[in-house]
Nucleic acid binder design. Structure first.
Lengths: 345, 345
DNA sequence: AGGCGAGCTGCAAACGGTTACATTCTCGTC
DNA sequence: GACGAGAATGTAACCGTTTGCAGCTCGCCT
């Protein structure tokens, strides 16, 4: 039960009175085609409503012009912007993007198992925050799948990462500079099966900043939850329920921070007086509610990742001269945006 | 300069001592293959690290197992959730999703021009809120590209839509019932080049609800801006700058409403006393700030659109018996979620 | 006039699967 | 032991491009 097939290159060739080779060359804009021939071929193709079948071209060339983008979700604030940045860049360079959310542990398992299946399906792969093991990376490598990772890095592939340790450090240091000494932490799930390293690194930065001031770590001030507003809200409630709540808190994402903020509201508390807060991301709404945060610009990160990937693909064409993998850290730098959640107006 | 090619089906056939046809059948799980033969083939394939080339299969079968998803953006709250819902459904049914953001007018022009190019590239298309003309739809139809539209509808293709007229009506009616008589409107760009019909329909509902109460329309109370928080904020500021601002406002999206809310905050105003507000979407944060809103569940809409598309594809296989296109309105109904932005606690 | 190279074009072999149709087994049955 | 049906397998055409190589045509130079 085949789909109806349209005209093929052969039909165009016949109609135009040339060979299929010439049609192919003419339509793809290759040189060595007489201008009038090209024009005639184009006219015929137009008239016949001819459209080349990419599957056939892919089979012949071995290139698909498809890039796979794997992210934990497609609808989180951070990831959707990362995707937007990456896709824009890909589209501008003649590639199409296959987006592949890998949310729960099961899916992740399946995804990792079948990673290498991507071999002939796509020209390249961008993996965001889904830490793949070095073993899996090796498989990808030997399978010859150009890959760029974001949010984590492997031995052989280029990566685009945020210095999450610095994120934690800078945020915490800011609170310390304001005189806070009891600083809480609202973390994304640290040992989530997706095992992305972001929470761990930010925690390390937070811890180090405290240690640098000689402040003992009190793990009761560390709460975690999902990387969402409700997650942040629940975590903040648990902090507020403590006998001796912190005076400030570092929240690992703005969305969590919004949730945390609403927990404050519910109890009639406000920032920065009752609780200073710094988030991460610089969500559009952060400015609206006056949340101090660290700007990450995921859109730009995505674009950079795509850029690196395309470079990698271009280079792998001539000679497998795979130079040392670039680990590109926060191409845009980290910017702390100070607002009312830490500094009273 | 070809990419390195892996083992082909022929290599497997030789090694396993069978024909390529048998390998093909064995690996795809077709019947009429002796169990032991199948096992041997699988072993050999495994040992050789064989992976079928989808391009070849696509060429032979004419099916790509690819679906294109075109949306105005990939990172808006509504669209990213729509995509998530659609992609989940597609993935679960063996399809991959190509996401294609079409944001600015130029891109839209290009997209519409090349719509028909999708013919042999994908098995189906979902177009969200990018009103395509009936002409373009006809082209798609004659090109035989199974399509489902969302957010708008065309003559021949199934569509999944929200009753945006009702959205406007219900929201406004709610405000009327609370006794408001001067009700403002904060709209998404009504004559945005993307020309999606959402703002227009919601406006019509708003207008009708007012008319039903015999309230004259005051267009000075209608402001519009981008479908974002800053857009909503700016619009609200212009409303507040009026000599005689409204006592309530219907805002066409929650994100805009958040911006509008922050404009209130800036002036020391609060809802529902100074300004009652109802939004649309039921964004996660709506609950946190207590925003009354109309729940849309884009995730479910996306899933439904994908479902309809796959049905359409399955049906078009046997007989072109294209039954009358289904126009499916808000499969989940419209729910008004009442919160503090309209009803004091 | 003959030679030569550049510019165009064509031929035909891949690329790697799928599948209609033909062929060969394998048994149970009479 | 011949027969026949159905299961298992093989043969080969086909899907629609790309591209290396060869051949042809001209104009220009000597």
């Amino acid at each position: 039960m085949q789909r109806k097939r349209g005209p093929s290159i052969e039909d165009v060739a016949r109609e135009a009175g040339v060979s299929v080779a010439t049609v192919s060359r003419a339509l793809r804009g290759l040189p060595n085609v007489a201008p009038k021939t090209r024009a005639r071929v184009q006219d015929v193709a137009e008239g016949l409503n001819y459209r080349a079948d990419p599957s056939a071209a892919r089979l012949a060339t071995g290139r698909t012009n498809l890039i796979e983008l794997a992210t934990p979700t497609v609808d989180g604030w951070y990831f959707s912007r990362f995707l937007a940045g990456a896709i824009d860049h890909l589209l501008a360079n003649g590639y199409e993007a296959i987006t592949h959310p890998v949310s729960d542990p099961d899916e992740r398992e399946r995804f990792l198992d079948q990673l290498v299946q991507l071999e002939k399906r796509v020209d390249g792969l961008i993996v965001v925050d889904l830490n793949i093991s070095e073993d899996a990376a090796s498989e990808l490598w030997t399978a010859g799948i150009p890959t760029v990772t974001a949010g984590f890095s492997t031995e052989r592939f280029p990566s685009v990462i945020v210095d999450d340790y610095q994120v934690g450090y800078i945020a915490t240091q800011h609170l310390l500079e304001l005189g806070h000494r009891r600083i809480g932490l609202i973390s994304g799930e640290p040992n989530h099966p997706l095992a992305f390293s972001v929470p761990g690194l930010r925690l390390a930065g937070y811890t180090a900043a405290l240690a640098a001031e000689g402040i003992p770590i009190d793990t009761r001030l560390e709460k975690s939850g999902k990387f969402t507003a409700p997650g942040g809200r629940a975590a903040m409630e648990r902090l507020l329920d403590l006998d001796d709540p912190p005076t400030a808190v570092f929240v690992m994402s703005d969305e969590m921070a919004f949730g945390a903020w609403s927990a404050l509201q519910d109890r009639g508390l406000s920032w920065p007086g009752d609780m200073a807060m710094v988030g991460v991301d610089d969500h559009e709404l952060a400015e609206m509610v006056g949340l101090t945060t660290i700007r990450l610009l995921p859109h730009k990160l995505g674009a950079t990742a795509a850029e690196r990937l395309l470079e990698m693909i271009d280079n792998s064409v001539d000679g497998d001269a795979a130079s040392t993998p670039i680990r590109e850290t926060a191409p845009q730098g980290l910017e702390l945006i100070k607002r009312h959640s830490t500094i009273s107006s």
